[in-house]
Design a binder for these strands. Structure first.
Lengths: 196, 196
DNA sequence: CCGGTTTGCTGAGCAACGCTCAACAAGCTA
DNA sequence: TAGCTTGTTGAGCGTTGCTCAGCAAACCGG
């Protein structure tokens, strides 16, 4: 009992890839309850059962870890939203909107924590967020068969801010039916991009 | 030279009110370059020429200081936006929109830092922000002579998110004239609140 | 002028956190 | 078994949020 009285299994070594994935996964699991910026290395390392030092072996600094987690969350969202290859063009945007609302309904905390963490503070993190919004706008403009000039990009991005806000408050207080919400969002988008 | 070799004036004592106001003022001056959450007590105290401890004499903790600074910034914005008493009703919203765009044009960094800091992270800070938006929506609904039911509040709040986003990107890249921007914003608002 | 009270104010110091570094040890291979 | 690679750790440093005992500047009554 003098040296190395370790309670659990003797010691678990993981491959670099496994460990990195595990750490990102832990970050994703904490996102629903914590904006990404409030994750502490201590907490993540504790949950992974490793020392703080090891996390810095895989991520140069806190920021790099944050952006990795945020990018993973963004990829999950994009995978969920992007239309399946076979979908007819006129249904793609509708389908994306539908899945978006469904995602917010299913994971409201994750959604809020993601948007909050992405919007605020750290520029590196919000850069990932902006990139994700940009990709969604790109898809929308393409499937709507519209030229993506600067004005239209601005309008669709702003419409996205509108949508995020409205869907967020609608989930907390459903003032209209789900179908009406979708119609309204789609209608506002159509009227906006019709300008110019 | 053994004891108390102080270079400047012997020591400056301020009244509690003065000191508090000074500290909030320093926070306001730092806002253009720093989202509120990234203010450090150290930096603020250094600029005020006092010890870190004193700041905690006036604000129980960092959060309380942040909210005080955010509230001060919000009050400045509201004072600037709210219509003067004599204005005819139909011009009030137009005037607010105009002043809002003007404010963003004049202080783009302050605006960004304010919105960023308010949206992200700390719930206490974003509470102040939400309260400010709520007051603006209240004024808008009143002057437009509309009932403020839950749906309309949601719509106007979401329109405000739309406006924030669009004006923010328009300032960086003016794709339309200022007048066209104002018309568009006003038109979208009118169409939204006409629903229901 | 002097002792006393109020109160603005400081310095030492603790805990938590981000981060570094030298070194240990698990697992593979020769 | 020796040796190499590399996953992993513990000690420790600087910063930051925060506490607390106590100093000292200003206002008092005498």
């Amino acid at each position: 009992m003098t040296a190395s009285s370790r309670p659990g299994p003797p010691r678990l070594r993981r491959s670099a890839g496994d460990r990195r994935a595990q750490l990102v996964q832990i970050g994703l699991e904490l996102l629903p309850t914590t904006p990404v910026q409030e994750l502490t290395i201590d907490e993540v390392a504790r949950r992974a059962g490793i020392s703080r030092s090891l996390l810095f072996h895989y991520f140069a600094n806190k920021r790099e870890y944050y952006t990795a987690v945020t990018r993973a969350a963004a990829d999950l969202l994009l995978d969920h939203l992007l239309p399946e290859p076979g979908t007819p063009a006129e249904q793609q945007v509708t389908g994306m909107l539908d899945r978006y609302v469904g995602w917010v309904e299913t994971f409201p905390e994750t959604y809020l924590a993601f948007v909050r963490g992405a919007g605020g503070g750290d520029p590196w993190v919000s850069e990932v967020y902006e990139e994700t919004r940009g990709r969604l706008v790109q898809v929308a403009l393409t499937t709507l068969d519209l030229p993506d000039d600067a004005l239209r990009r601005q309008l669709v991005l702003a419409w996205f801010a509108f949508t995020e806000d409205l869907v967020g408050s609608w989930v907390q207080e459903p003032t209209v039916t789900r179908a009406e919400l979708l119609d309204l969002l789609r209608d506002v988008l159509d009227r906006l991009v019709a300008r110019g």
